[in-house]
């Protein structure tokens, strides 16, 4: 799958100073908010590598929080995001840690949402404001946020993918990219499907109602 589109090169419109450490960080925050929809109530941010080393001078922490608040990378309020979070009742903790063999510009966000959603999202900033979400709740994924994306955790058993994809086919939804990963054989697997078409609530419900599907999430393109 292509790493970017033309507006990932000419763009984003952003508050400086760094496309990887500021705009990319804001996008990781926004994508995390899309994965755990609604207003986040608390977020524990862990910075790794260059994010930890030079993040403060680049406002990486401000940008991640701005993204969690739903702000675009070009929003002037990015600079005051910590104040905004305080007013919004979003509790922020920032720390740094070695997250292992990951891209130097990586952050992990442990988020609790207002609907009780709890998730751990790891994302890396690839340059020019382009990012990839590499891990959700311990499952390896690869989400660039340019497509309508379906994230499904389900039992690791034969026939799951065909049941899921037949619902997509019935709804006329075309698959652009797809990836399945699992922690161990026969346990839980996670499938990420990037599609050319909007994932309607009906389709989401149909997939959710399938036997042995644990959770389903539709992530819209993050623009």
């Amino acid at each position: 799958m292509p790493k970017t589109d033309v507006f990932g090169i000419i763009g984003p419109i952003m508050i400086g100073p760094s496309s990887s450490h500021t705009a990319g960080a804001a996008r990781i925050g926004r994508m995390t908010r899309a994965i755990c929809p609604g207003r986040p109530r608390s977020a524990r941010i862990t910075l790794h590598g260059s994010f930890a080393e030079t993040g403060r001078g680049h406002g990486t922490h401000l940008a991640l929080v701005a993204g969690l608040l739903g702000l675009q990378p070009g929003d002037d309020r990015l600079r005051q995001s910590l104040d905004l979070a305080r007013k919004d009742g979003l509790e922020i903790t920032i720390g740094h840690s070695d997250l292992g063999n990951v891209h130097p510009n990586t952050a992990r966000l442990d988020v609790i949402g207002e609907d009780g959603c709890r998730t751990t999202v790891t994302g890396s900033s690839l340059g020019g404001g382009n990012v990839v979400i590499t891990n959700i709740d311990g499952f390896e994924v690869e989400i660039y946020g340019n497509y309508h994306t379906l994230v499904i955790s389900h039992a690791d058993e034969p026939g799951m993918l065909s049941r899921i994809t037949s619902h997509l086919a019935d709804a006329g939804v075309n698959i652009a990219n797809m990836r399945t990963s699992r922690k161990a054989r026969g346990q839980t697997a996670m499938t990420v499907i990037e599609t050319d078409h909007i994932i309607t609530p009906d389709l989401l419900e149909a997939v959710r109602a399938l036997p042995n599907v644990e959770s389903v999430l539709a992530v819209p393109p993050v623009r």
Binding site: G11, G16, G128, G129
Partner: peptide, 12 residues
Amino acid sequence: CMGRIVAAPTAG
């Protein structure tokens, strides 16, 4: 100065 720009391809 943390002003608004267009990354092209990056901010730097």
